[in-house]
Design a protein around this nucleic acid. Structure first.
Length: 453
RNA sequence: GGCCACGUGGCGGAGUGGUUACGCAUGGCUCUGCAAAAGCCCUUAUUCCGGUUCGAUUCCGGACGUGGCCUCCA
């Protein structure tokens, strides 16, 4: 099976050819762990989980290595640490913050059905690796020391701006930031910066300080993957400066012309047509969504839009996602076990065309229509859907609700009696009372089921 | 200002140089104590203006519109 992927480097869809088909290397930029993950954070996690599943399917799980790092050096983390633990050493305060956020992040994405990466390195655990790169870059004159900072000299790398598709001149013309005095060129970026006594830091040849953001991915990808790997992924907003700067550092350090063969970026996510932002107060946490919807609704809703398109995250589309899954769950048979290697060609083929999940999902609709429920379930499972079992799906209730399942069952039985006795006034009264509580009854041929509105 | 992406029916959302997937909603029918659910069936679309072509929604150019990046936001 041929896999085609859109490569930001070339701005075209390219055939994916692994560097070594027995050692395929996928590196994805993970979260900065300053606060509970929001639904925008979930997008790359779900998208690259899908890519990981496809790579596993084509090349074999043992031949694919997936790394998703954790950024735990960041001023937003520092600010929380000062505020919440003012009386303890800053590095310890930070650990308390990040440990909690990481735990929560793991819970969230486990709920969303994402496979674990093989490695999940943290910036704080790779400080010496980053320092090694800095030393080498200073030696090779790609970096310089200035006012206790170490900066990367963007003019020293001829391909700077290639990923972003902009020249240095074009970037400066659009620049709105004030240029720090210690920079030779306005776009030079920090590899190491000094920390005050109250800021987190590590000892280094350039004094007590901390690394710049971009450096961690160069250090961690080098550590696990060496100088050159297959795919580097992340959100589209990471193209500049993050990935551009990573490429500069890594290529100068390794004396390479490529860091990764493919750069893949997912589109942004809006909430009800608006960008998520603190000022609008519309930052939607994954946990909030998990309280309101079965987790597969969230995952399915994400996959219904192609990963490179912007996605508008709305209540309406969540409802529609729920409706479709509910329809599919009606025909699943939990006991059946499938051969995972027997996935229909047309389904995988859709996914192999640059992860065209909407087209792949249309195949599921066709399977449903044809009554081919085995392939529906098999392909659904591949996408991480239709996995929880019919009973769990049907009995799922929002965690915030005060719905009493036993009471509902009792009322249903009571209503059945009334209906048998043709006491429709009574039976309708029971149904209306439940509707008022947000529970809808459906009288199927054999029995009555209920669902939460 | 620079760079980039996008513009498809009531809504969501794919593909394609020649009958415009798929879903949701709407409408009709079947079933049903009623309602719902379920099943069946049907209708509606490629922003505009040029060009290339026998033929363009698809390729090229332009206009208009929307959005992203140029700030350590995924």
């Amino acid at each position: 099976m041929e896999l085609k992927l859109y490569n930001t480097l070339s701005k075209t869809k390219e055939l994916f050819v692994p560097i070594d088909k027995e050692d395929i290397r996928l590196y994805v930029c993970g979260p900065t762990v300053y606060d509970l993950a929001h639904i925008g954070n979930a997008r790359p996690v779900i998208v690259f989980d899908l890519l990981y599943r496809i790579l596993n399917n084509i090349f074999g799980k043992d031949n694919v290595t997936y790394i998703r790092n954790i950024t735990d050096v960041d001023d937003k983390i520092n600010n929380r640490a000062y505020a919440e633990y003012p009386n303890i050493f800053i590095n310890d305060a930070i650990n308390k913050i990040t440990a909690g956020v990481i735990k929560s992040f793991h819970e969230d994405i486990f709920s969303l059905g994402c496979l674990n990466p093989d490695f999940e390195p943290k910036a704080t655990e790779n400080i010496s690796e980053m320092q090694e790169i800095i030393l080498a870059l200073i030696k090779s004159k790609n970096a310089y020391v200035s006012e206790n900072h170490v900066l990367f000299d963007v003019t020293s790398y001829k391909n700077y701006g290639k990923l972003t598709n902009r020249t240095l001149k074009e970037m400066i013309s659009g620049s709105r930031i004030e240029v720090a005095t210690y920079k030779r060129h306005p776009l030079d970026f920090v590899l190491w910066k000094p920390s005050s006594e109250i800021e987190p830091g590590w000892m280094s040849p350039w004094g007590y300080g901390r690394p710049g953001w971009h450096l961690e991915c160069s250090a961690m990808s080098t550590k696990y993957f060496g100088s050159h790997f297959d795919i580097h992924g992340g959100g589209i907003d990471l193209i500049f400066p993050h990935h551009e700067n990573e490429i500069s550092q890594s290529c100068c350090f390794h004396k390479n012309d490529k860091m990764a063969n493919f750069f893949i970026h997912n589109g942004i996510l809006n909430i009800e047509g608006k960008k998520m932002s603190k000022s609008l107060g519309n930052i939607l946490k994954i946990k909030e969504l998990l309280n309101k919807w079965p987790s597969e609704v969230i995952r399915f809703n994400m996959l219904r839009t192609h990963y490179r398109q912007p996605i508008d995250w709305t209540e309406t589309s969540l409802k529609e996602s729920w409706l479709i899954l509910n329809k599919w769950y009606d025909v699943t048979e939990d006991q059946k076990i499938f051969d995972e290697n027997n996935i229909p060609y047309e389904f995988i083929e859709s996914l192999c065309d640059d992860l065209n999940s909407p087209l792949a999902i249309s195949k599921l609709h066709e399977f449903y229509k044809e009554g081919n429920y085995d392939d529906l379930r098999l392909c659904g499972n591949f996408l991480g859907l239709l996995k929880i079992g019919k009973k769990d799906w049907k009995n799922w209730i929002p965690s915030a609700s005060n719905i009493d399942v036993n009471q509902i069952e009792m009322l249903i039985t009571e209503r059945e009696e009334a209906r048998k006795n043709k006491d429709f006034a009574q039976s309708d009264k029971i149904r209306d009372n439940l509707i008022a509580k947000g529970i809808k009854l459906n009288d199927n041929k054999d029995k009555t089921t209920w669902e939460v509105l």
